[in-house]
Design a protein around this nucleic acid. Structure first.
Length: 167
DNA sequence: GCCAACGTTGGC
DNA sequence: GCCAACGTTGGC
């Protein structure tokens, strides 16, 4: 098999995600500066399960929530698969979980790497107004999961939107 | 700051 | 295992 085929296959099997963060706490600029970060503090089982599914190289839409405005600030990628979230063992952490033990951790986090910061932020309103993105989980009623799957089609579209509006 | 929607907890 | 009460998320 040629290397081109391998590349094609890798792209085909990699998944796309959306990860929410409050920019006051950790923003795309923080990620740009730090290059990578452990996605600590997720305390929702569904979001945790999605993180466990993530593979190195998966694409991540970096979403600013509870912000003015909220929306997509840039892109990232999965740098390391899920490991036990260290904050669950730390009594001083706001994310401490007394039920978790080193032998039986409850919470996991992936390492995420900076890819790009959009020159033109794509606001939540932009997404809502775009018929092509009507299936995104982030705009579904009542949806508040901090980690969500994104279809490759929607990921591609968001990526192209950011390129177009930059010109 | 409000509140709808969803998740979690705990009594029964 | 039901479900009321409570806590949290996150857009507005």
């Amino acid at each position: 098999m040629s290397s081109n085929n391998n590349l094609y296959k890798a792209q085909k099997t990699s998944k796309c995600w959306l990860m929410k963060t409050e920019p006051d706490v950790f923003s795309i600029d923080d990620l740009k500066k730090n290059k990578t970060t452990l996605w600590e503090g997720v305390r929702n089982y569904q979001a945790r399960n999605y993180m466990k599914e993530m593979q190195v190289g998966d694409s991540v839409i970096f979403y600013h929530s509870s912000s003015k405005p909220s929306g997509v600030a840039g892109l990232a990628t999965v740098n390391k698969t899920a490991v036990p979230d260290p904050t669950q063992f730390n009594k001083k952490s706001e994310y401490f979980d007394p039920k978790a033990t080193q032998e039986k951790p409850i919470w996991f986090c992936t390492e995420v790497k900076f890819v790009t910061k959009f020159n033109n932020f794509i606001s939540l309103e932009d997404i809502k107004n775009d018929k092509n993105l009507s299936e995104m989980v982030v705009i579904q009623k009542g949806s508040r999961l901090s980690i969500q799957p994104v279809s490759p089609k929607d990921f591609e579209y968001i990526q192209q939107l950011s390129v177009k509006t930059t010109k």
